[in-house]
Design a protein around this nucleic acid. Structure first.
Lengths: 353, 353
DNA sequence: CTGAAAGCGCTTACAG
DNA sequence: CTGAAAGCGCTTACAG
C-alpha cells in the first residue's frame, strides 16, 4: 500500500467560481446558475460548465453561499444540565440528525450547564448560541428551566423544546414543543397489571421530578378507575434513580403488607428494585412483579427482561427537527405542542395472578 | 407569567456593521477593529462604538467573518457504521465538544453507513463532507475501513481517526490517530488475576474484531510470562457480544475442566457470561472470577460490580480534537499516533484463591 | 488612530 | 439563454 500524502504538499489554492468561468469561457453568473440548476441554461453550455467543474475539481464554497441565502441550514442540538449523553438523548440526537441530513441540513452538538436560579441574561450560553448567523435555530434537550427558555427567546433564536424534561413552567407560556405521553404510559402498564390480577400495586418513583409525577398520575388514574388504592413507596433520601429503586425495595421488604406488583418511575428505578429484591432472595416476577418506563437498551438484557413502557426516541428527535424547520419557514405560525404516544411492552417481569 | 412572543412580530432586519458605523459616526473599518480588539483604537472611539453596538443590539455575522478567515472553526464528528450512539462514543463526542468549545470551535455531528467493499469514490459521504468550506476537518469514529480513509484523503479533508476501531489497515499507511491501549489493558487485568492466585484463566472474546484480538494478545502475554497456558473459549456462532458471552458460559459449563477465572473481550461479553452463569447457579466470583474491558456505565451497576479495564473516553475525544487543531494549523506536520493508557479497576468480580 | 476602498466567493436582478 | 454589475456582511492593507 502506497503512502498517501507525505504532508509536504502545499495547501492547494482554492479554485473559485471565477476559475471555472474562465476555463469554460462563460460569465460567473452562468456557473452559479448551473450549480443551482435553476434558470434555463442551454444544454451545450451546461455540459461545458460541468466539464470545467469536473476538470478543476471545483466545489462551491458553502459559506459564501449561506451568507447570501441568509440561512446557514445548521441547527444546534443543545443538551442542558446532563453530565453525560445518556442513550436516551443519544437516540433523540440521532433522530434529529437523520431528519436533518435528509433535508441537507446540519446538526451542531453543544452542551450547557446552568442553574435554574441564574437570571436569564446571566446564563453563559455556549459559543454556538452567542454567534450570529451560525445557526438557524436550536433544539432544546436535557433539563429545561424557565430562565433558559426566556434567554433563548430574548436572543430571538427560533427553537423547539423536548418538553418532557421542562421543569417549573406554567401552562401559559407558549412555545414549540415535542414530548411523549408519560401519563398514558403508566396508565397502560398499570392497567395491564390489573388485568393480570394484581390488586396491591405500589408506585416507586422520585416525585420531585415533574415527569415522574405525570407517570404517578397515570398510575393513580388506572388504580382509581378500578377502585384500587394507590400507594406511593417513599424511601429515605436516595442518590440517583438506581439507588432510589434499591431503597424502595428495602422499604417494601420492611413493610407489613407487601404489594404483588410495583410500577417503577423509570427503568433505572426498576433496575434498582430488581437488584435489591434479588439480593434479598425475592424473585421477580414469581414473588413480585415489576414494570419500568423508558425502554432503555438494557431493559431487554435484564434477567428476566423488563416489561416497560416504550418511548419512540428517534421519532421525538425527528419531530423536533421537523417542527423547527416549519418554524423557520413560517415564523408567524402559531406555536404547536405535540405529544407522541408511548407503548407498554410485555416482557418477563409480570406474573399472572 | 406574560406570554412572550405572539409569533406575529415581523422578523427584524439584521443590523449590520454599517448601521453601527453610522450610529457611532465612524467608518466600518473601525467597527471591525473594535470587534476584533485588534489594532489600536482610541479609548474614546472604542467606547462610542461599543455603546452603539449595545444600543443596536448588534451581533456580527459569523458567516461573513468565516469566509474572510478561510476557516469555519467547525469540525465534524463522523460516526460510521453504528446503528446507535453507544455511551462509549457518546463520551468521546463529549470530549471532542468540551475541547472544541473551549477554543470557540464547533462540532457538527454526522452519521455514515458504508460497506468496506465499496470503492472509495463510491462512498456516499454525508452532506457535511460534500460541501466545501463548511467544516475545517473531521474526526473519524465508529468502524473505519481503508476505503473510507482513502476517500477522506482524496477530498483532501484534514482528519484524525479514533484508531481502535480501524479495521483492515496495514501499518504502512500513515495518518493522524488517537487510540487507547487494548494490549496493556488485558495484560494488567490478567496479571491481576494471576496475582490473586488464578492459574486456569480463559479468554472469551470474539476474535473477528481486531481490537478484541489485541486484547487477546495482552492476555496471552500475561499468561506466557507466567508460564501458563492461554485458552481461548470458542462458542458457536453468536449474535452480538452479550450473546457471545452467554454462549461462552455454556461452553465453559459443558467443558471438562472449568477455569477459575475468565477474561472477557469486553464488558458486554462479561455481562453475557455473568447472566448465563448466574442462571445456571454458578456464583461470581465465588465459583468463577470475571473481568471485563471498557468500563461501561453499567459495569459498576452489576451485582457484584464488574472489575474491568477503564478507558478514558473523554480524554480520547479531547486528544482527537487537539490533534486535529494542530493539523489545521500546521498542515505540513508529520503524522502522529497517540495511544492513551488504560487502567484496570478492581471491583467485585474477582476472588482471591 | 481612522476612513475609504478593495476584496472574500458567491447569488441575483438587470439588460440584452 | 447569458454577461456584467451590484451586493451579502464582513476584514484588511493602504493612505493619511
Amino acid at each position: 500500500m502506497p503512502k498517501i500524502g507525505s504532508g509536504m504538499e502545499a495547501v492547494p489554492k482554492q479554485t473559485t467560481i471565477r476559475d471555472v468561468a474562465r476555463a469554460a469561457g462563460v460569465g460567473i453568473g452562468t456557473i452559479s446558475r448551473v450549480l443551482n440548476s435553476s434558470s434555463q441554461v442551454s444544454l451545450e453550455t451546461r455540459a461545458r460548465v460541468n466539464e470545467a467543474i469536473r476538470r478543476l475539481g471545483f466545489r462551491p464554497n458553502a459559506q459564501a453561499r449561506r451568507i447570501l441565502k441568509r440561512r446557514s441550514e445548521i441547527v444546534c442540538f443543545l443538551l442542558s444540565n446532563r453530565d453525560f449523553i445518556h442513550p436516551f438523548h443519544a437516540r433523540i440526537l440521532q433522530g434529529v440528525e437523520s431528519y436533518a441530513s435528509g433535508l441537507r441540513h446540519h446538526v451542531l452538538f453543544a452542551v450547557l450547564h446552568y442553574s435554574p436560579r441564574t437570571a436569564p441574561e446571566k446564563i453563559d450560553l455556549p459559543p454556538v448560541l452567542q454567534e450570529h448567523g451560525l445557526i438557524d435555530g436550536v433544539i432544546l434537550a436535557g433539563t429545561i428551566y424557565p430562565n433558559l427558555l426566556r434567554r433563548i427567546e430574548a436572543i430571538r433564536m427560533p427553537f423547539v423544546a423536548f418538553s418532557n424534561n421542562v421543569v417549573g413552567m406554567d401552562g401559559d407560556h407558549l412555545y414549540d414543543q415535542v414530548g411523549f405521553d408519560d401519563f398514558s404510559g403508566t396508565l397502560q402498564s398499570t392497567r395491564y397489571l390489573i388485568e393480570q390480577g394484581h390488586r396491591e400495586i405500589g408506585f416507586a418513583g422520585d416525585l420531585s421530578y415533574p415527569w415522574i409525577r405525570r407517570r404517578f398520575d397515570g398510575y393513580r388514574q388506572a388504580m382509581r378507575e378500578n377502585k384500587l388504592k394507590p400507594v406511593s413507596i417513599l424511601p429515605r433520601k436516595a442518590d440517583g434513580f438506581v439507588d432510589f429503586g434499591q431503597k424502595s425495595a428495602e422499604r417494601i421488604l420492611a413493610g407489613l403488607s407487601r404489594p404483588s406488583a410495583v410500577v417503577a418511575g423509570n427503568d433505572e428505578t426498576a433496575y434498582g428494585l430488581w437488584l435489591s429484591l434479588r439480593r434479598q432472595g425475592v424473585k421477580v416476577p414469581e414473588e413480585i412483579s415489576l414494570v419500568g418506563f423508558d425502554d432503555r437498551e438494557e431493559a431487554v438484557l435484564m434477567d428476566p427482561p423488563l416489561s416497560t413502557v416504550r418511548v419512540y426516541k428517534e421519532e421525538i428527535g425527528q419531530t423536533c427537527m421537523k417542527m423547527l424547520l416549519e418554524r423557520l419557514h413560517h415564523p408567524q405560525m402559531a406555536y404547536s405542542q405535540r405529544i407522541l404516544p408511548t407503548e407498554f411492552v410485555v416482557r418477563g417481569t409480570v406474573r399472572q395472578l
